[in-house]
Amino acid sequence: DKPVLAIQVLGTVKWFNVRNGYGFINRNDTKEDVFVHQTAIKRNNPRKFLRSVGDGETVEFDVVEGEKGAEATNVTGPGGVPVKGSRYAPNR
């Protein structure tokens, strides 16, 4: 398990590439950019086929120490709701 650095952090999605399945979230508290992989998205938009977060979307997440620095995990919308997802992700 990766060491946990912070829990229930709010941030804004800087960018997310649906095809490659990753992007970055900017933390509201430290203004640090945190890597996010599609496997870290815990509550996906049920209408979306692929797990994703949308550019500019506000999300809540935990921060863990990854191999290359801070990574987001347990990604949801604020308060644990499903994320909205990327407009580029296909609908079901």
Rank of each mutant, 00 (worst) to 15 (best):
V53D: 00
G54E: 11
D33Y: 13
D55F: 08
R87V: 12
G11S: 08
G66I: 00
D62Q: 03
E67P: 15
V83S: 03
Y88S: 06
V81T: 14
F61Y: 03
V13G: 00
V53G: 00
P90W: 11
K84S: 08
S86P: 03
F49N: 12
Y88H: 15
S52L: 03
D29G: 07
K68F: 10
L50A: 10
K68Y: 09
V53W: 00
V59T: 01
G66H: 04
F49T: 15
G80H: 04
A72I: 02
P90A: 11
F49G: 12
S52A: 05
N45E: 04
V63A: 00
V64I: 13
S86R: 05
V63M: 05
N44E: 07
V63W: 00
N91F: 14
V83Y: 02
L50F: 11
V64D: 04
A70L: 15
P78F: 04
K68E: 06
V18G: 04
D55M: 13
D55C: 14
G80A: 05
K68G: 09
P78R: 06
W15G: 00
N91L: 12
G69K: 04
N91G: 11
E67D: 13
V75Q: 00
G79F: 08
R87H: 12
E67C: 13
D62H: 01
E57T: 03
R92F: 11
T73N: 12
G77T: 05
E71S: 08
E67A: 15
G56T: 03
D55N: 13
R47D: 15
V18A: 14
Y22D: 09
S86D: 04
F24V: 00
R47Q: 14
T76W: 00
D1Y: 12
D62L: 01
R87L: 11
P90I: 09
D29Y: 11
G79W: 06
S52C: 07
A70P: 15
N44M: 10
P90T: 10
R87G: 08
N74F: 00
E65H: 14
V75F: 03
D55S: 14
G69R: 03
L10V: 12
D1V: 11
G85Y: 01
G66E: 00
V59P: 02
N91S: 13
T73V: 15
N74L: 01
G56V: 00
R27S: 08
T39I: 08
T58G: 05
L5S: 11
V64W: 04
A89V: 10
G56M: 05
G69V: 01
R92S: 11
Y88C: 08
Y88N: 09
A89Q: 07
G80D: 07
R51V: 06
A70W: 10
N74V: 00
G79K: 11
F61R: 03
V83P: 04
G56K: 07
A72T: 02
G66D: 05
P90Q: 10
L5M: 11
E71C: 12
T73M: 15
K84V: 12
E67R: 15
V63C: 03
S86Q: 07
G66L: 00
E60F: 05
S52H: 04
K68N: 12
S52F: 01
R87Q: 13
G66A: 09
N44Q: 09
R51T: 07
V4I: 14
P82L: 03
R47A: 14
V83F: 03
H37R: 09
V4F: 10
V75C: 02
R87T: 12
G54A: 15
N20S: 14
N44P: 15
A70T: 14
E57W: 00
T12P: 05
Y88K: 09
I41V: 15
S86E: 04
K48V: 04
N91V: 12
Y22H: 15
G56P: 02
T73D: 11
G80P: 03
P82T: 08
F16V: 08
A70Q: 15
G69T: 03
G80K: 06
V53I: 14
T39S: 13
N74D: 05
L5F: 09
R47V: 10
K68D: 05
P78D: 00
K84Y: 08
K68S: 08
G21V: 09
E65C: 13
P82N: 08
V53P: 02
G54K: 12
G77C: 05
F16I: 09
T12I: 07
G69C: 06
R19S: 10
R47Y: 13
S52E: 08
D62F: 00
G85V: 02
V9G: 05
K48Q: 09
E60I: 11
N26I: 15
R51I: 05
T58A: 11
H37N: 08
K68C: 08
P46Q: 08
G77D: 00
P78W: 04
Q8H: 11
P90E: 08
V13F: 04
R43S: 07
F49I: 14
V64M: 06
R51Y: 08
F24L: 09
V59S: 00
N45G: 07
A70I: 13
T30A: 10
N45P: 03
